[in-house]
Amino acid sequence: MLLETKNLTRYFGGVKAVDGVDIQVKEGSIKGIIGPNGAGKTTFFHLLSGHLPPQKGWIKFKGEIINHLPPFERARRGIGRVFQQPSPFENLTLIENILISLDISNSPSLFTSLLRLPSLGKSEKEKEKKAIEILHFLNLEKKLYHFPSSLTHFERRKMEIGRVLALNPSLLLLDEPTAGLSYREKEEIKKIILGLKEKGLTILVVEHDMELITDICEEVVVLNFGKKIAEGSPWEIKNNPLVKEVYLGEEYASGS
C-alpha cells in the first residue's frame, strides 16, 4: 500500500469532521472520494497533507507513519496536493511558479547562489528544461513568462497541477480538479489525470462530478458526516442504496 489511514479522526469542537476513516490506496491506482458538502473530504485532505493534525488515528505513507511530519516534509517525501481554490504565487511568472517546487530537489548552495557561480546557471537551465517539459504536458508552454493574473481560471488550475508535479510526487491529492470548468476543459483535465496514471502516479481525487469519477476511478470511497459509509467500484457505489439515499439521491430527486 502506498497510503493507508487507520481510524483517522479530526473534530472541530463537537463536530466530527473526519470520524474514524480507514482507507487504503494501492500504488498506481486512482481512488475517488465523494460525499455531500460538509462530508469532511477537504478536511481529510488537510490531514493527509499535514495542514491539520489528526486527534486520533494514523497515516502511513510508503510504509512509514507520517503523523508527525510538517506539510513541507510530506511534500518532499512525495505527497503532492492541489488545493480546491487555485492559489498561484501572483508575484511569480508561470515558469517560476513551477521552478519553486523544482528548487526543492535541486538547489545549489547559498554561497554558489550569491556569487552566481557557473553551477548556478547550470542547475537553473536543467530546472527550466524540466519546467518547460511539465508545462508542455499541460499545454501551457506558450505562456511561460506570464503572470498568473493574466491566465484564465482553467490555465491557473493546470498551473497548480504542474507546480505539484514538479515535486515529482508519488501520490497526488486532487481536490475538485474540474470545479467551475467547461465540458471541454473537463475533458482535458481528465486526459491529464489519465496520462499521469500511465506515468505511474497514484491519485486520490475528491470530486462532485460523478461522471468523471466513474470514468477515471477504479475505486470510490463515500464519506458522510465524516464517516466512511461505503467503498467499492464506481458501479457498486452507484447501486449502493445507502449511498443513493445520502448523496446521489439528492441529484436523482432533483432530476439532474
Binding site: H51, P71, F72, A75, R81, I104, R163
Partner: peptide, 9 residues
C-alpha cells in the same frame, strides 16, 4: 499553506 504544500520550509 501554499509554499508549505510545495515543500518550501
Amino acid at each position: 499553506r501554499i509554499p508549505l504544500s510545495l515543500g518550501v520550509n
